[in-house]
Amino acid sequence: MPGRLGRRNATRDPRRTAVTATALMVAVALLAGISTVFVSATASVGRLVGDRMRADLVISGDADGVSRTGFDPAVLTVVAGAPGVQAVTGLGEGAAVIDGRPAFVETVTDVPALRDMLGLTAAAGTIGALADDQILVDQRNVTAQGPHVGDRVTVRLPRGEARQFTLAGVYTDTDLLNGWLLPASAAGGFRKPQPTQAYVRLTPGTDVAATKLLVAAVLAGSPEVSVNNRAEYIAQRNAKADRLLTVVQLLLALAVVIAVLGIVNTVALSVLERTRELGLLRAVGLRRAQTMAMTAVEATAVSVGGALLGILTGAGLGAATVHALAAQGVTQLTVPVGRLAAYLALAAVAGITASLLPAARAARLSVLHAIAHE
């Protein structure tokens, strides 16, 4: 009976209940939507690496703003000679101006190895070893006007004069690379001519963990450069997204707190308006514990109802956003069911917590004074 009374009290003033639940719904919808987008993005990275990348180890410098820390090119030679290493390719990175437009380019020490380890396929031309005056590009950077295979493009790097490169091939889009690829001989034009990343492929049957320790020993003099296996590489790429999601969740938690205070206010007002009714209920046998339970059900119905609508709305908006971001590489829609269930459970706890003060006041009402209340 207390539960039935609590549910009916929650719908007694639909307008006020709806306004109160809407504040929580908006906050939870933002949480659910952002969580869906971020979880889908991290799942897309995992799927991309799992499907396309055939490297067993990845060497990379720590990101310092827009670029990574470089390391000694001799590391590539030492690692290539290690037991069980089948192929090694290093990448440098930097800014450039290509045909008058700003661009981000990378240099590659071994294009065939990179092609095999990242699963690159040619959309035009060939994806092979580059001469000193050749360049590769992905489909995203090719328009109807060009450049086309065989065309000459003008590349200006931060150091040195502008140079002409011939487009040797166009590879299909991949989020593992940034677009333009230059031969390693062009790295001297960067502000940081050292490689910043490298992919290592091992022969079948080689102990990945043991080889990782060997490579880490080679990198002992470069504490800002790390070597990771595939799983660790995925976690490294998703680390920034995970930190950003945590920050966003903490900020939206403030909105949830404000919404819970609104539930406290609404339930307290409801108790005040029903003072005489509560006295009559107490007079006909409603105990104090039942009075508190009735108030708790009322508050929980408002909070859970708002949270449930927020979860459904947020998940829908998150799915739509993921669909819109397909061109940016977010191709794996993943709904964080466990996290959304946790939001709903927390909403129920918040409803019970919000009812504590109003429920205590309702339970302490004097029956005679409450009946006489006008």
Rank of each mutant, 00 (worst) to 15 (best):
D207G: 03
V66H: 11
R364T: 10
A129V: 12
V264F: 07
E93M: 15
V271Q: 06
A359L: 11
L130D: 00
V225R: 03
V79C: 11
R15L: 15
D151S: 02
R287D: 15
A41N: 00
S226H: 15
L244H: 11
L30S: 04
V79Q: 07
V215H: 04
G318Y: 00
T321C: 15
P336L: 06
L312K: 02
A162L: 08
D138V: 09
V37R: 00
G329T: 01
D175K: 11
V97T: 08
Q134A: 13
F71S: 05
Q197T: 12
L252Y: 09
S67H: 11
A21S: 10
I263E: 08
A296K: 02
G70C: 01
P14Y: 09
S40Y: 01
G285V: 09
I59C: 06
R287E: 15
E298C: 14
E224W: 01
A326H: 14
Q145V: 10
A10K: 11
R159L: 12
V28E: 03
L309Y: 08
A350C: 07
L5N: 11
N238M: 06
L286V: 12
S67C: 07
L130G: 07
V200A: 08
V39R: 00
L120A: 04
I258M: 14
I234R: 06
T334L: 15
T89D: 03
L365A: 09
T17L: 05
A268E: 09
A123L: 08
V79G: 09
G205M: 10
T69C: 03
L280A: 13
A345G: 15
T143H: 12
V257R: 00
T172L: 11
G33H: 01
E374G: 06
A63L: 14
G90N: 01
S222L: 03
A348V: 07
A354H: 01
N238C: 10
A354T: 07
I371S: 02
D133E: 06
V149D: 01
V66Y: 14
N178A: 15
G188F: 03
L308E: 05
T126Q: 12
G70A: 06
P223W: 06
S222W: 04
E106S: 10
L244A: 14
T166K: 00
A259W: 02
V248C: 13
T22W: 09
A253Y: 11
L357W: 14
T196M: 11
V304E: 09
G65E: 10
M25W: 01
S355N: 06
D151N: 08
V78Y: 01
V170N: 05
T211Q: 08
D51I: 00
A186K: 06
D207T: 05
R8H: 12
G50L: 07
V170M: 10
L5Q: 13
A307P: 09
A95D: 15
L356D: 08
A131W: 05
V337C: 05
G306H: 08
P193F: 13
K240R: 13
V28Y: 00
E273L: 13
S226Q: 13
